[in-house]
Write a protein that binds this DNA or RNA. Sequence first.
DNA 1: CTTCTTGTTACTGA
DNA 2: ATCAGTAACAAGAA
Length: 286
Amino acid sequence: MPELPEVETIRKDLSRLIVNKKIVSIEINLKRIIKPNTKVFSGTLKNNKFAQIERIGKLLIFKLADHKKYLLVHLKMTGQLIYQKNKKIIPGGHSDKSSIENLPNKFTRVIFNFFDGGKLFFNDARTFGYLKIVGKEELEIIKNKFGIEPMTENFKLEDFEKIIKSRKTNIKAVLLNQQLISGIGNIYADEILFLAKVKPDRVASKLTKKEIKNIFEATGKIIRNAIKYRGTTFNDYLDANGNKGNFVKFLKVYQKEGERCLVCSSLIKKTKVAGRGTRYCPHCQK
DNA sequence: CTTCTTGTTACTGA
DNA sequence: ATCAGTAACAAGAA
């Protein structure tokens, strides 16, 4: 599930791979995920270039060189953006093994073809993801819906505490709410709360100042470290080169139900909180 | 066959 | 108006 660290990894990869390369054609295999429609989509992108790639929360923002428009890409649960450079056939030579995927595959929904023969594949098994062309005004409206973002100067303990104190729902629901705090999904919410030693079903407004500080610091540590290790691959996530993320080996509770806690050896439990599968250590987390 | 998976939003009710 | 809780979405894996 691509969350902030996975999307950030893709953003950085693609910034190096496709910025300022002319898009010569676009292939759309599933029209339903293209917004506002395929005509505007292809018309805006063909013969254009990505000038810059940004991110807010889990949303990728491709700033276009011409037309003053932006391409928004949301990967939702199973979306992938994988770039492959022009495959040269070297007579008698070895094949290009820089990418591990054989693309396109049956989940390839959109292909961007660049002038140099490079291709960007948007794959999505469950087709929850979307690609959307927007103007500056619509972009600003969308951006304004996102809450404070870890890893930025806007992520301050004071604001974090205000947000948490103002909510009567459980702390996990608050961490997952993109309009309050952006970029955290199910994997990192559980990992953050384990590191902070707080049970996921605790009522947010009733947490102590100390507990909120621990969650704040755990958020920074987990997100920073997950970016460092290029994200978590559980099922579908791959980076822009088609490689897996390495953070999976640092997970302490996510998908660890029935295993022993690495800190206290209690059995990791699984319940449902905020409508999502939730793992925690019943001894370490209070 | 049923159940589970999750990011986001629509809907319902308080 | 604001908030909280749940269902729905899609489709593959088990």
